[in-house]
Design a protein around this nucleic acid. Structure first.
Length: 780
DNA sequence: GTGTGATATCTTTTT
DNA sequence: GATATCACAC
């Protein structure tokens, strides 16, 4: 029923875009497949084409599961597949992060484990705060049992599928904990587990842990999902942990149509339990495995590819492969060196400014990468001084801001009355006279009588609390109950607005006239706007309702499920995207930019101090550097400083060993430190180490095809935009930055006309025609 | 019970 | 430099 001759022709055409190995990997749809994909070798391409190919050969999209690590990757992939298949069937593919897909499974079948379908998801802050409460109850010193360390331990146990019950009786662990003078670790773990369960809450690791339990203990459930997910694809397989490995193995056991894609050289999440052995040993699990190695890099210049290779050979543990490229040799890697972190920032800003002017590039051709989020400040300052617009990815997410979490806690508590962390957060915010001592009474009573805190306060009988406070508590209970009563009847936006004002949060923030208070108020408004958008959006078809689009109202409950696993990187503002990107190297994984700056190339920072003690940690840092280098298409610049503010004081720094590890023939080290503002000339007389001839080299054309960002310089002044009023749906248009695309939709009145355009290889963009320069190529 | 100011600790990296 | 916790005055 999915047979459609037209579609197949379409996909066959696309197959001709692929190189031989890529095509084989896409076409081997039956049986286990492993794709070892070097950086920039078209890994995402293989995955998306594979899904498209599956669908076009008649596989029902409902039977396809594609797992990624970030929401962003999932969304991009989905967009590209929709484009390839040209059919909304593809919407029915289950595509998402491990955590989001498993959380969905648990919403459907978690009742077998005793969880309601609207269980709460605790984020790291909730987990830490619960640990602190437990430490207090057990009268343990938080300096000995640092919440971070405790949580790490809990987390890595769950990632390795070790239940707390096993941990606490395991003599080896007891030994270790005694040696680390943390003998109560097992007890904390048990308590943590029980408290989460009582609160009907799961933390991030529980989503994996419990999914595994579900599939392990309920054969009929396992059977159901095995039947459903006949074709499984896993992205970034090198970053899976043991729990993820076991779940995938179980799901794939029946049909063994499993395709994992990864690059051992880019494994950078061992610190949170990723097990590189999963990819190294994959062939032991599936003897008739087909392995494909993608070694041709289409992204970067020869210099970058070879420099990256010269780094990674320093690692011992890896699958042998040789990444190569046909691209132009390109420019050497400039190494800039400033006297302080502030000067480092200035040099980067200056270099971007010059490169941008010299080559007429947009801001988003540049990315600045760093090891730790704290490094962004000096760079931001320098960019601001030169009026270079930038955008920070990661850092504190919108949903982690205090005011946002406060309001969300009201929603959470209304949805799940047992959500302890939410309750503790808001029972006295805004201040209503229920203080620390009262809360302690409540917690003690709840523990003594083995009740939830909500049960205790809703019964209203508490010794040791004065009657005035009791009244306030019962008012609070009544308020939450009234919110709860409206969950199913009002749409998300109406109810959210109601809660925001009648909880007193709006008033509290409105009265705060400091700049921070103002911005907090605006954030709440932004959240409400997001909920409004959500309320008006069509619900996605889902597995449970057979893909049917439901017509019922969108509730707050649904909104909370939607955002529980979202991170900052997910609210992309499509309209203002011409900005320099600032992010950690970790969050740059999977992305590419024409020009990349890797900053803070200093010992103890990159590689980080903590990694220096063990070889495997150092190797992970080196892989991280490899990832950073291979993000760049045209030029990568390394920077470091002699002095840097750390913990508020100026500390001296040494250049990173990683600079020495790069073969010097690929480096461009200015003989004398360049001045902060003079033109930044290197030895061969080129501006910022960039020969003008770079753009005339014929091989680089190939790069231009992949992403037109740099192609704009080729036809410099010849771009003449068409009149915005002439743009109509169906037209083929050219955009200076995004290249060719098709107009899908146009809306809004003359001054505010907005077009939705699908750009080849980039995806769907919303453009304000007032600003976007589009040239009509074909009028349908 | 609330609010203010002083001080200790901090920094990996993310779902 | 920023945030979380603590001590003390209301």
């Amino acid at each position: 029923m999915y047979f459609c001759p037209h579609k197949i022709k379409h996909v066959n055409n696309i197959l001709s875009d692929l190189n031989e190995v890529q095509r084989q990997a896409v076409e081997s749809i039956n049986g286990p497949v492993m794709v070892i994909a070097g950086a920039g070798s078209g890994k995402t391409r293989v995955l998306t084409y594979r899904v498209a190919h599956l669908i076009s050969t008649g596989v029902d999209p409902f039977n396809v599961l594609a797992l990624t690590f970030t929401n962003k990757a999932a969304r991009e992939m989905k967009g590209r597949i929709l484009q390839l298949v040209g059919n909304s069937d593809a919407r029915n593919v289950w595509m998402g992060t491990f955590h989001s897909v498993f959380s969905k499974i648990l919403r459907i079948d978690g009742h077998l484990l005793g969880y309601p379908s609207n269980y709460t998801i605790y984020d790291t802050d909730d987990s830490k705060s619960l640990i602190k409460t437990i430490l207090k109850e057990l009268d343990l010193d938080p300096k000995v049992y640092q919440p971070n360390v405790v949580l790490d331990r809990i987390s890595s146990c769950k990632s390795s599928l070790i239940p707390a019950e096993d941990y606490i009786i395991n003599s080896e662990f007891q030994e270790q904990d005694r040696a680390a003078s943390k003998p109560k670790m097992g007890e904390i773990m048990m308590r943590y587990k029980n408290r989460c369960f009582k609160a009907q809450a799961m933390d991030f690791d529980d989503l994996l842990f419990n999914t595994n339990v579900l599939l392990r203990d309920f054969p009929e459930i396992l059977y159901k999902y095995q039947q459903k997910f006949r074709y499984i694809l896993v992205d970034e397989y090198q970053d899976t942990n043991f729990a993820q490995y076991m779940i995938i193995k179980k799901l794939a056991a029946r049909f063994e149509n499993i395709c994992v894609v990864g690059d051992d050289a880019q494994s950078i999440y061992a610190f949170r339990g990723a097990n590189i052995q999963n990819i190294l040993n994959f062939k032991n699990d599936y003897p008739d495995l087909k392995t494909f190695k993608l070694e041709q890099n289409y992204r970067s210049t020869q210099t970058i590819v070879k420099a990256a290779n010269s780094i990674i050979v320093n690692n011992k543990e890896q699958i042998f492969k040789e990444v190569w490229t046909e691209n132009a040799e390109g420019v050497l890697i400039p190494v800039l060196h400033g006297s302080s972190d502030n000067e480092e920032g200035r040099m980067i800003a200056q270099s971007i400014f010059e490169t941008k002017m010299y080559n007429q590039l947009p801001n988003d051709a540049f990315a600045i990468l760093y090891r730790t989020n704290a490094q962004s400040r000096s760079i931001e300052e320098a960019l601001r001084k030169l009026n270079i617009p930038y955008r920070i990815y990661g850092g504190l997410s919108f949903y982690k801001r205090k005011e946002i979490k406060d309001l969300l806690a009201y929603f959470r508590l209304a949805i799940n009355l047992n959500d302890e962390e939410a309750l503790n957060r808001i029972i006295n915010y805004p201040a209503r006279g229920i203080g620390k001592t009262s809360l302690e009474h409540i917690i003690v009573k709840a523990n003594e009588e083995n009740k939830s805190q909500w049960e205790v306060i809703s019964e209203g009988k508490m010794a040791g609390i004065n009657t005035g406070t009791l009244t306030k508590i019962s008012e609070f209970v009544l308020m939450i109950k009234s919110f709860r009563a409206q969950l199913k009847t009002r749409n998300a936006y109406d109810l959210a607005k109601h809660i925001a004002s009648s909880s007193g949060i709006m008033k509290e923030l409105y009265e705060d006239k400091t700049p921070e208070g103002l911005s907090r108020y605006e954030n709440i408004e932004e959240l409400l706007n997001a909920i409004k958008d959500f309320s008006e959006k069509e619900p996605e078809p889902s597995f449970e309702n057979g893909g049917e689009i439901s017509t019922s109202i969108r509730t707050l409950d649904e909104f909370m499920q939607d955002i529980a696993l979202l991170t900052d990187a997910d609210n992309d503002n499509e309209n203002d995207n011409d900005k320099v990107a600032l992010m950690t190297i970790h969050s740059a994984k999977g992305l590419e930019f024409p020009y990349v700056y890797i900053t803070g190339m200093e010992e103890n920072l990159f590689p980080s101090m903590q990694s220096l003690s063990s070889r495997s940690d150092l190797e992970e840092e080196r892989r991280l550097f490899y990832v950073a280098l291979t993000r760049a298409r045209i030029r990568v610049t390394l920077t470091y400083a002699d002095m840097r503010y750390r913990w508020g004081t100026l500390t001296p720094c040494e250049p990173s060993r990683f600079i020495d590890e790069i073969d010097t023939v690929y480096l461009d080290i200015p003989r004398k430190a360049p001045s902060a503002f003079g033109p930044n000339r290197s030895e061969n007389g080129t501006l910022s180490g960039l020969p003008a001839s770079l753009f005339q080299q014929k091989n680089l054309k190939r790069l231009d095809k992949v992403s037109p960002a740099s192609g704009t310089t080729d036809n410099g002044g010849s771009f003449e935009p068409s009149d915005a009023a002439d743009i109509q749906p169906g037209m083929e248009v050219d955009h200076q930055k995004f290249g060719r695309g098709k107009v899908l939709n146009v809306e809004g009145d003359a001054s505010n006309r907005k077009a939705t355009v699908f750009f080849n290889g980039i995806g769907q963009k919303q453009l304000l025609l007032k600003f976007a320069k589009l040239k009509i190529i074909k009028a349908e």
